[in-house]
């Protein structure tokens, strides 16, 4: 996916700027007299960082050891996910607490039902989101193997991988999602044009 490239100025340059006229309401502080450091706060230890640093990037950075496939994932999904998200591949007549997660074919009509198969651009997002916030009534309780397994099952149920394929730190980031090609960065930029 193409992302905007932003010009990153060094903070030293900006910190030296005086408040300017224009749209910003005198927010930039005159930092000319500031010390290099206020010596407020403390250095974080590696243990502290590791305890909180649970995010997974699309390139797989952050994925823990462990693995699982759709076979083991289906059992866990049925026990811990299906009550809210359902087990079918079509929208059901009953209102479930959680959204449907699967579609009967990868890249199926997303106007009818948005699911992992036709709308999610990165497989790593599935792992990251399940691990941090699911199950809704017991967030953060799944083991890495369980998360890999459920992720594998959801990819399988959306016809993206087969039932035996093991998901782990090496294989998960390599999964190419059908919807990835659809995503574009925002092209609005202010000004008269309606976008």
């Amino acid at each position: 996916m193409r992302l905007k490239t932003y010009i990153v100025l060094s903070y030293i340059t900006l910190a030296a700027c005086k408040p300017t006229t224009g749209s910003h309401t005198a927010l930039l502080q005159d930092t000319g007299s500031w010390p290099a450091s206020f010596h407020i706060g403390r250095r974080a230890t590696l243990a502290e960082i590791n305890a909180l640093d649970i995010d997974i990037r699309p390139d797989g950075k952050g994925l823990p050891p462990g693995q699982g496939n759709a076979l083991s994932g289906q059992t866990i999904y049925t026990a811990k996910c299906a009550a809210c998200h359902g087990t079918g591949t079509a929208a059901m007549n009953v209102q479930l607490p959680g959204p449907a997660l699967m579609n009967d074919s990868a890249g199926a009509n997303r106007k009818k039902l948005r699911t992992i198969g036709n709308y999610w651009p990165y497989a790593t997002t599935i792992f990251d989101y399940i691990r941090r916030s699911m199950p809704y009534n017991a967030p953060g309780t799944l083991t890495p193997d369980e998360v890999y397994s459920i992720t594998a099952y959801l990819l399988y149920a959306n016809r993206i991988i087969d039932q035996q394929t093991m998901m782990n730190a090496a294989s998960l980031p390599a999964v190419e999602m059908p919807a990835k090609k659809l995503f574009i960065a925002d092209d609005r930029q202010g000004g008269p044009e309606i976008r």
Partner: peptide, 23 residues
């Protein structure tokens, strides 16, 4: 690089013509 979290991929994005607008 961005982290591509759930709230910036499957949520808070929207179809624009035949593409999905993100960020």
């Amino acid at each position: 690089q961005p982290f591509m979290t759930r709230e910036e991929t499957s949520r808070y994005t929207y179809p624009v013509k035949d593409r999905i607008r993100q960020f």
